[in-house]
Amino acid sequence: MESATHDPHTDVDLSVSLAGVALSNPLMTASGTCGYADEYADFVDLRELGAFVTKSITVSPRAGNEYPRVVETRAGMLNAIGLANVGLEAFLSEKVPKLEKLGLPVFVNIAGSTVEEYLAVAEAMERVDIVRGCELNISCPNVKAGGIQFGVDPDAVESVTARVKNACRTKKLIVKLSPNVSDITATAAAAVAGGADALSLINTFTAMAVDIETARPILANRTGGLSGPAIRPIAVYMVHRVYTQVARQAGVPIIGMGGIQYARDAVEFLLAGATGLAVGTALFVDPGCIVEIKRGLTNYLIQHGYTSIREIIGTLRME
């Protein structure tokens, strides 16, 4: 594996700029699949990432949904965690000191059931240096407080984005879009009109798995969000549509996610127009996959004669 003399890997530039935030490479964690970073400390050096995205934070702590909360499906899984999180106060006192030690740009995913709740978390983040931006979760399919009511109607997307953007005076605002809409370019355009600095797509698909013996849904919440390799082709398609129809013209970068497990998956998203790449479900299988994905991306770029990862973003050939 190791080359004896010179290492071509150091000649390839993986760095990207995400709405003005410099990342050493495009890889990020997908919210809710990485906790608050310390959980994975034994398993992988998270400094391999370009940025860290936290689990959704709400103003008050949330216990989450009843058990069972997950079920595996073919090439994926459903989750209905219900935004279980420690709440704003504990996040600031207990989690932020740990995130500071990471030495990575941090984006805090924020959720709420009212605009005021989003604003309270966003305001609080203004005072945390390590936090470079907020990711507005208006797309959690599992609880009312997850903001899905803001995420499926373009007018609501625009107004909630604009109001939170107002609170993000020194921080970037990423809007995380739901795939549970008939036209994702409409909600993407609305987020951009509201002032989003970047777009994350996609969150999970609302779905259901059934216990055929009891004739009941398996999850206590009845429905859950589908993630993992199963959703990747739809995610790639949605990233490409939003990139070509909304984001490229507006100069707004996309963080692509949905089923990224191997480097080849990451390349698909880059070609489709993503600048950032978030890894979620695959971290459960092996947190070290981010190191492998980075290595594979470097190999891909070398083998295709590129010197920077930025050269391939959005270069999918449609002719």
């Binding site: 994975y40 216990a63 069972p68 997950v70 899984m77 965690i81 279980a84 459960f284």
Partner: peptide, 26 residues
């Protein structure tokens, strides 16, 4: 039922008695 086993996904909750007002926590 577990997805990660490492404490990140929050899927494997058990109700445990404690001193909180509700009397338990996950």
């Amino acid at each position: 039922h577990m997805a990660c086993g490492m404490g990140t996904c929050q899927s494997c909750v058990v109700k445990i008695r404690d001193e909180t007002p509700r009397g338990w926590s996950y």
